[in-house]
Each structure stands twice: as structure tokens, then as C-alpha cells.
């Protein structure tokens, strides 16, 4: 009985992370890994529980959520609008695309000092950084998605007398939707990445604030809890886009069969 379970465990993808956890726990208990280097898994779980119960984690998580949500909304909206302008008209392309290409060469995080000078150290530079960073993947993917729509489909639809607006609505936008969703996925992960850095800017709440504080008091357990939360955020973002994709792209054969 137990040997069968062990055999199945050995084959499962969960086994190696589990082994790692057990080794980590044992090493911590035996004093091989001092607590100020890395807290034991059991201590991390206990800390997670107290932070949840005290409301410390939910409150700070909410603050971070708010920053990502607002920044993403602004960034994605701007990216979509710019991509539509550049993708749907030649003049728009000439006006928008060169600027976006220049912007692409500047790493967003390198703009942090400038944003602090402009916006101070409150919420604004954090949200602005996230918005700025998440705009580009959406723009780039949607723009090339619009430009890559199958001309034969466009022509077929045009031969049935569809107007320009109807062509955009029935052919171009649905055709570019998969690209938009790819862009959205990149934007989400970039937004979380920028969040981590932006929250190092003199924050008084949020996940980054928790981590900074924990660093000052050498609370490795809290740091690990926050890292876990970041990971969960990333997984959640991915799951969100996947769900949207499943809903919006039901017509794809791979998804039809599933």
C-alpha cells in the first residue's frame, strides 16, 4: 500500500519540490540553515497564517492590487487605443509607431529616477511606471495582429459589401484578438515585475513595503511569504488570461476539442 503511494509519488511532478521542502525543513531544524539566512518552511507557514489573521497581509495585498490594477488599466487602455490608431490608418501609423519604437528601446525601470523627480514618491510614480511598462506589449501585439489579419478573409468579406466599419468590427478586430490576448499576458507579467521594483520607492503600504520592513528586521519568514504572494499573483494573472482566452477563442480547433 504505502510502497504503491511512494512509487506514484516518485513519478509525480510534485515529488522533487516536496523533497526539496523536506530537506529545507530538516536543514533549518538541524541548524544547518540559520533562521536569519532563510526561515524554515514551517515557520513561513506559521507567519503566513498570523499575517492573514491579523489582516496585515490582506491589507497590504489590497494596496498592491490597487496599484497593479490601476496601472494596468491605464497602460492596457493606452496600448489598445494607440494600436488601433496605428493599425487602422496609415496616418496613425506614421504618427504613433515611430514614437512607440523609440520608447521600446528605453528600459522602463531606467525611468524610475525621472518618474520620482516628476511625480514625487507617492502613489503616482508607482502607478505611472506600471502603466508605462504594460502599455508596450499590448500595443506591439495588437498592432501587428491588426496588420497581420488575413487579407484573403478581408477581401472575401469585402466582396459581400461590408462597409469599412463593419470590416473592422467583423474581421479585423476578431482576427487580431489572439494577438491582443498574447500582449495582455505579457503586460500582466511585466506589471507584476514593475510592481516589485516600484514598491521599493519609499512605500508605506503594499507588498514591497512588507518586504522592505522585513529586510530591516531580518525577518526572512516574512520575505518568503511575500515572495510566495508574488508567485501566486503571477500564476493568477496567467490563469486569468487563460480563462479569457478560453472564452474568447472558442473557435480555435485546439480549444474546440478540449
Amino acid at each position: 500500500m504505502s510502497t504503491r503511494i511512494l512509487a506514484r509519488l516518485a513519478r509525480s511532478r510534485w515529488s522533487s519540490p516536496l523533497v526539496l521542502l523536506v530537506v529545507w525543513e530538516l536543514a533549518s531544524r538541524s541548524g544547518l540553515i540559520p533562521e536569519r539566512t532563510l526561515a524554515a518552511p514551517s515557520a513561513v507557514v506559521a507567519t503566513l497564517w498570523t499575517m492573514l489573521v491579523s489582516g496585515e497581509l490582506p491589507q497590504n495585498l489590497l494596496v498592491s492590487f490597487w496599484r497593479v490594477g490601476l496601472g494596468l488599466s491605464i497602460g492596457v487602455a493606452a496600448g489598445v487605443v494607440l494600436a488601433l490608431v496605428a493599425g487602422l490608418s496609415r496616418q496613425g501609423e506614421a504618427a504613433v509607431d515611430p514614437i512607440m519604437q523609440i520608447k521600446r528601446t528605453i528600459p522602463t525601470l531606467a525611468l524610475t529616477p525621472l518618474f520620482i523627480v516628476w511625480f514625487g514618491i507617492g502613489e503616482t510614480p508607482k502607478v505611472a511606471l506600471i502603466a508605462f511598462a504594460s502599455m508596450f506589449p499590448v500595443y506591439l501585439n495588437l498592432y501587428s495582429g491588426i496588420r497581420g489579419v488575413d487579407v484573403r478573409l478581408l477581401e472575401g468579406a469585402r466582396s459581400f459589401g461590408l462597409s469599412q466599419a463593419e470590416l473592422i468590427w467583423h474581421v479585423i478586430l476578431p482576427g487580431a484578438l489572439p494577438a491582443l490576448l498574447t500582449g495582455l499576458r505579457y503586460s500582466l507579467s511585466i506589471a507584476i515585475l514593475v510592481l516589485v521594483v516600484a514598491e521599493q520607492i519609499n512605500a508605506s503600504a503594499g507588498l514591497g513595503y512588507l518586504i522592505n520592513n522585513a529586510r530591516d528586521f531580518m525577518r526572512t519568514d516574512i520575505i518568503v511569504v511575500c515572495l510566495m504572494v508574488y508567485a501566486v499573483l503571477g500564476l493568477g494573472a496567467d490563469a486569468l488570461v487563460r480563462t479569457i482566452e478560453r472564452r474568447a477563442l472558442v473557435w480555435r480547433p485546439s480549444l474546440i476539442k478540449a
Binding site: 478573409l153 467583423h170 476578431p174 482576427g175 484578438l177 473557435w251 480555435r252
Partner: peptide, 9 residues
């Protein structure tokens, strides 16, 4: 020759 149906409709 190719039916040119819109796959999303």
C-alpha cells in the same frame, strides 16, 4: 477556391 469563412463566426 479557399472558402474564406471567418473562423471566429
Amino acid at each position: 477556391q479557399d472558402a474564406r469563412l471567418l473562423p471566429w463566426k
